[in-house]
Simulated assay, not measured.
Amino acid sequence: MKFETQRFIVKEAGEDDLEYVMRLERAEENRDFVFQNTYEEHKSNIDSTENMLFIVQDRESSENAAFILCSYKIPYDSFELRRIVIETKCKGTGSELISALFKYSFEVVKANRFWLDVFTDNDRAVHLYKKLGMVHEGTLRQSYKDYSGRYRDQMIFSILNEEYVKR
C-alpha cells in the first residue's frame, strides 16, 4: 500500500490491473478527457522509477474504484498528476483522492510542486482543481490532437509546497 484515505486504499498497480486501467480510460464517459495508453505503455509505467501507476480500492468492498498515474521528476522536485480516472463520479472521490495525493507528494515524496494539465472542456475537473486551491498557470492552445482529429486546449494547474502548507 502507498497511502490511504477515509474511504480508499491506494496501492501500486501490477500487470494484472492493466485491463481495468485500460477499460476505464476507454469508457465512453472518460475517453474524451484522458489519454489512452497502450498495454505496453502502461506496463512501462509499472516498471518505471519515475512513473507511478496506482489502483484505488474501496476500503469496505475491496472493489477497484479508480486509477491514478503520476510521475515525479527528482531533479526538479516536481510531482505531476498525469491521469486520474474514477469509476463512479460525483461522490467526492476526486476531491478525497487528490487531497491525499497532495499529502503524499508534499509530505512523503517531498515535492516542491504538484501540477497537472486538464482539457478546457472538462468542467467538473477544472472546478475541482480550483476548489482544492490549485492555481491556473495558463492554457496550452491546440496542444493535443484527439482521436477524432480535433485540436484540444489544455489548462495547466499547480500548487506549491508553500501554498499547500498554508491551506
Rank of each mutant, 00 (worst) to 15 (best):
F33N: 06
Y20S: 02
E28G: 02
Y76K: 13
Y129E: 02
N122L: 06
K73W: 15
Y144R: 12
E107C: 12
V85M: 07
R141A: 01
L81N: 02
S143T: 15
S143L: 00
R26A: 08
C70H: 10
E137C: 10
R31Q: 11
Y76M: 09
F67K: 01
R31P: 01
D123Q: 12
F67Q: 02
K43Y: 13
A27P: 00
V135K: 12
S105D: 05
Y144H: 15
T93Q: 04
D153S: 07
G149I: 13
L128W: 13
E80R: 10
S78L: 13
L24E: 09
S61D: 07
F35M: 03
T120R: 03
V126A: 00
L69R: 14
R26M: 08
V85W: 12
V118S: 05
R83S: 14
F54C: 08
N30Q: 06
F35N: 03
S143A: 12
Y147A: 04
Q57H: 08
K89N: 00
G138F: 08
K89T: 13
S44V: 09
C70F: 06
A13V: 12
V108G: 00
K130Q: 12
L101A: 04
I55W: 06
C90F: 11
N51D: 11
T49C: 02
F67L: 02
G138A: 02
L97W: 11
T93D: 01
S61A: 06
R26P: 01
K110W: 04
V109P: 01
R59P: 01
I46M: 00
E60M: 04
A65H: 05
V21M: 02
L81W: 08
L18F: 04
N37F: 15
N122Q: 08
K43H: 09
F67C: 02
K43N: 04
I74M: 08
T120D: 07
D146F: 09
Q142K: 14
Y129G: 01
R26Y: 01
S48C: 07
E19M: 00
Q36E: 13
E50A: 06
G149D: 11
N45W: 11
S143Y: 12
I84Q: 02
Y39F: 15
R150C: 05
K145F: 04
R23V: 10
H127K: 14
D123S: 13
C70W: 10
D121R: 11
W115V: 04
T93M: 07
F54W: 14
Y20F: 15
W115K: 09
Y39N: 03
N51C: 06
E60V: 08
K130C: 03
R113A: 00
S143C: 14
L140Q: 12
L97I: 15
Q57R: 12
K110V: 06
R152C: 04
F106S: 03
K145M: 14
D121W: 14
R141F: 07
A100C: 08
L53M: 06
V109H: 04
